[in-house]
């Protein structure tokens, strides 16, 4: 099975091509550069280098967020439209899950996260069990302080993985001390190869069904809902 994996959900731009569970090519940059300009040229170049035509693809896997709303939409629009036109399945994988793959050989809790500003993070809690990644806590948009408080109560070792690790490192270490495991640089960068692998094991969706995993309402929508609630409360 020929798989194209695409991740533009955060700062990393990653494109990978797999034959079943084997990576045969990958392009990755970790730069603040425009994903919209660079994604298709990267796909085109990689497909050329591995001598694969678009119609030889069997499946497209895409990181569906959380992350930058715009970044997520660039990846999803590209993946779902391509899959639709080639009439092949498409799979969306949580961007947090892709990061959790870097903790494949860690036996306790894995906490991948992306900074969401104002003390907030997009995060979830994972654990590798019987060669499978399972969810311990659902993904959500939470205050990092609250996440750390909760983890502290558990008194378990936790592996933290995040491209934004520098922003929260101090707070993590202060809160969890030796229970916090924080690896070096490359482990915090999501890899499209892992994304492809994760997508291989997941059930495919139709292109129409695939939507971003924002983990947050649009601001206008959240405000509107709040207003409705207030109106209700005031009768």
């Amino acid at each position: 099975m020929n798989i194209l994996a695409i991740d533009t959900s955060n700062q990393v731009l990653g494109v990978s091509i797999l034959k079943d569970d084997q990576i045969i090519g990958e392009i990755m940059t970790n730069l603040t550069k425009n994903h919209s300009v660079r994604l298709m040229p990267a796909i085109e170049r990689l497909m050329g280098e591995v001598s694969m035509d678009p119609d030889q693809l069997d499946r497209i896997v895409v990181a569906k967020g959380p992350g930058s709303y715009t970044g997520v939409r660039i990846g999803i629009s590209t993946a779902k439209t391509m899959a639709w036109s080639l009439n092949i399945p498409v799979v969306g994988v949580s961007s947090l899950e892709v990061l959790a793959y870097q903790g494949r050989f860690f036996n306790e809790y894995i906490c991948p996260f992306f900074d969401a500003r104002r003390g907030l993070v997009f995060t979830g809690l994972y654990k590798w069990e019987n060669n499978k990644l399972s969810k311990v806590m659902d993904e959500n948009n939470l205050l990092m302080d609250n996440v750390l408080q909760k983890l502290k109560e558990e008194q378990k070792r936790v592996l933290f993985l995040s491209p934004d690790i520098a922003v929260h490192k101090e707070a993590i270490q202060q809160s969890l001390g030796d229970l916090a495991v924080i690896p070096e640089g490359p482990y915090h960068v999501p890899q499209a190869g892992h994304l492809g692998l994760a997508g291989l094991e997941k059930e495919a969706e139709t292109a129409h069904e695939l939507v971003p995993n924002y983990l947050r309402l649009a601001e206008a929508e959240a405000n509107w809902l709040k207003e409705q609630k207030e109106k209700e409360n005031h009768g």
């Binding site: 715009t70 391509m82 036109s85 080639l86």
Partner: peptide, 19 residues
């Protein structure tokens, strides 16, 4: 810009996939 990006990226995906 966010709205345009969806169309532009979809169009590029089609152009590449269908050559």
């Amino acid at each position: 810009v966010g709205a345009l990006l969806v169309g532009v990226n979809a169009a590029k995906a089609l152009a590449f996939a269908k050559q």
